[in-house]
Design a binder for these strands. Structure first.
Length: 418
DNA sequence: TCTGGGGTCCTAGGACCC
DNA sequence: TCTGGGGTCCTAGGACCC
C-alpha cells in the first residue's frame, strides 16, 4: 500500500500559519517577481481564481473581492515543509519527499500492522495539523497513481474529509468515476483534450482502455498510467524516487538587466545551486547548459545558450564558475534587456564512477566541496560561497507582498500582543 | 508605464555518417 | 538518369507537474 500526503494549497496555507488574521479570508500567493498566481486557498478557490494566470491580468478582480495577496516566501515555505515532512515521516519508515509539499509513503512490508487505513489517514492529518497548523490531504492506494487519485478525491470530492482509501474494487471504481480525466496524474491539458474527443472523460473511462492501444495511439507513459489505474504496479518505489536526469536553476529578473557583471554573477549563482543539488544526489555532470534571454513577450527576442563540455564529469562549483567566465562573452550582447537566465546540468553520471583525464589536470576537488556543503548545511546556505557569486541581491526580485520570515530570522519572530 | 514562474522529462525532426 | 536505408546524435520545443 502507498500513501500520498500533501498540503492543501501549501503556500497559501503556510501564509496562514503565523497570521491568524487571514485564516478566514481568501488568500493567493504569487510566483517569483509577483508574476503569476501559484497558490489559491480553498476560500479563494470559490471565487474561481485561475492558477498560473499573470497577476496583472486579475489584479482588479482580486482587489474587488478583497483577496489577500502574498509574494512567494520560499524561506518560510521551505522551513515549514521540513517540519511537516518530519511529522509525516513518523508514520512510515519509508518516506519519499516528492516535492515541497508532497510525500509518498510506502507501507509495503508492514501492512498487516495497520487494519484501518482510513483511521490511520486521519491520525496523520490530525497530527500534522496539531503540530504545524498545516492542513493536509491523505490518499491511499495500491499503486502510486491510485494513491495520487485517492489524494485528489480526499481533497476535492464531496463526502471525503481529507482522507480517501482505495483498497477494494468498489472504492477504486467510485473514486475514478468521479474524477475528471484531466485530473489524472500524467494527463495534462493536451492529452485530456484528445482523450475527450474519444469519449474518454473520466479516470474510470481511461482505466477501462486497452493499455496496448493507448501505447500505440499515445505513448508508453499513458500505457503505464492505464495499468497503474487498474492496480497493476508499473511505477516501482525505485522509479518514484529515481535520481534526476537533469538539474536546472533558472530565474527571471525583477527588473531587466543590461549590465554584464550582474548577468554573469547571476549565472554563477545558478551554477552554484545546480552544483549543490548535483552533489546532494551524488551526481556529476558532463555538460553544462548556460543560457540567457530577453523577454519572449517583447520585440526582438534574444536567446542564446552554450553547452559547455567538461573533460571529466564534475560537480565542483569552482569548475562551473570558470566555465561560465570562459564562455560568457559569447552569450552577452550589449543593449539587450535581459529578462531571464539559467544553468542546467545535462547527462548526469554517478560520482562513484568518475573517469579522470590522463593528460589534463583538473581543479575538481570533491573533498573541498564536501567541506563547503557541510559548513553550509550547519550554518545556512550561502555562509560559504565562491567569490564570484558574491552579491547581496535577490536580483532585485519583485516581491511587493512579502510576509516575514517568521521561523528563520530572529527579527521576524512573531509577536503576540496581550 | 509596465507587468507574463520554475523544474523535469520526452520526442520529433534535422544533421550527419556509412 | 534517377532514386534509395538505417543508425546515432543533437536540439528546440512541447508536455506535464506543482
Amino acid at each position: 500500500m502507498y500513501a500520498l500526503v500533501d498540503a492543501v494549497a501549501f503556500y497559501a496555507s503556510a501564509e496562514k500559519v503565523f497570521d491568524p488574521s487571514i485564516r478566514r479570508k481568501p488568500v493567493v500567493v504569487l510566483t517569483n517577481n509577483d508574476g503569476c498566481i501559484c497558490a489559491v486557498c480553498p476560500i479563494a478557490r470559490k471565487l474561481a481564481i485561475p492558477k498560473f494566470q499573470p497577476y496583472f491580468q486579475v489584479k482588479q478582480y482580486l482587489f474587488d473581492h478583497q483577496v489577500v495577496i502574498r509574494s512567494s516566501n520560499y524561506e518560510l515555505y521551505a522551513d515549514l515543509s521540513e517540519r511537516m515532512m518530519n511529522v509525516i515521516g513518523r508514520f512510515c519508515d519509508n518516506q519519499h519527499i516528492y516535492s515541497i509539499d508532497e510525500s509518498f509513503l510506502n507501507f509495503n512490508g508492514f501492512n498487516p500492522l495497520i487494519t484501518d487505513w482510513y483511521r490511520y489517514g486521519h491520525t496523520i492529518r490530525r497530527t500534522v495539523w496539531r503540530e504545524t497548523k498545516l492542513p493536509v490531504g491523505v490518499g491511499f492506494g495500491p499503486t502510486a497513481t491510485l494513491a495520487k487519485a485517492a489524494n485528489h478525491a480526499a481533497k476535492k470530492l464531496p463526502g471525503f474529509d481529507g482522507v480517501a482509501v482505495i483498497d477494494s474494487e468498489s472504492s477504486r471504481v467510485n473514486i475514478l468515476r468521479a474524477m475528471d480525466i484531466q485530473d489524472v496524474w500524467g494527463v495534462g491539458k493536451r492529452l485530456a483534450k484528445k482523450l475527450k474527443l474519444m469519449n474518454i472523460n473520466t479516470a474510470l473511462d481511461l482505466a477501462q482502455q486497452d493499455p496496448r492501444k493507448m501505447k500505440r495511439l499515445f505513448s508508453v507513459v499513458l500505457e503505464r498510467t492505464v495499468n497503474e489505474l487498474c492496480g497493476k504496479r508499473c511505477l516501482s518505489w525505485d522509479d518514484v524516487r529515481q535520481d534526476k536526469k537533469e538539474i536546472f536553476s533558472t530565474r527571471s529578473f525583477g527588473e531587466r538587466v543590461t549590465d554584464p557583471i550582474t548577468l554573469k554573477t547571476a549565472l554563477i549563482n545558478h551554477s552554484a545551486i545546480v552544483a549543490r543539488k548535483l552533489r546532494a544526489q551524488g551526481s556529476l555532470t558532463q555538460r553544462l547548459l548556460i543560457f540567457v534571454a530577453s523577454s519572449p513577450h517583447q520585440q526582438g527576442y534574444y536567446k542564446k545558450s552554450y553547452i559547455y563540455e567538461f573533460n571529466i564529469a564534475t560537480a565542483d562549483s569552482r569548475v562551473f564558475a570558470n566555465a561560465i567566465s570562459e564562455v560568457f562573452e559569447q552569450l552577452y550582447k550589449p543593449n539587450v534587456l535581459f529578462y531571464k537566465c539559467g544553468v542546467g546540468a545535462l547527462e548526469l553520471t554517478s560520482h562513484m564512477f568518475q573517469q579522470p583525464d590522463l593528460f589534463q589536470a583538473s581543479i575538481d576537488n570533491p573533498k573541498l566541496m564536501q567541506c563547503l556543503d557541510k559548513i553550509n548545511a550547519r550554518f545556512g546556505i550561502g555562509t560559504l560561497a565562491i567569490a564570484s557569486e558574491t552579491s547581496s541581491a535577490d536580483w532585485h526580485m519583485k516581491r511587493e507582498y512579502l510576509s516575514p520570515h517568521y521561523t528563520t530570522r530572529w527579527y521576524n519572530l512573531p509577536k503576540i500582543h496581550c
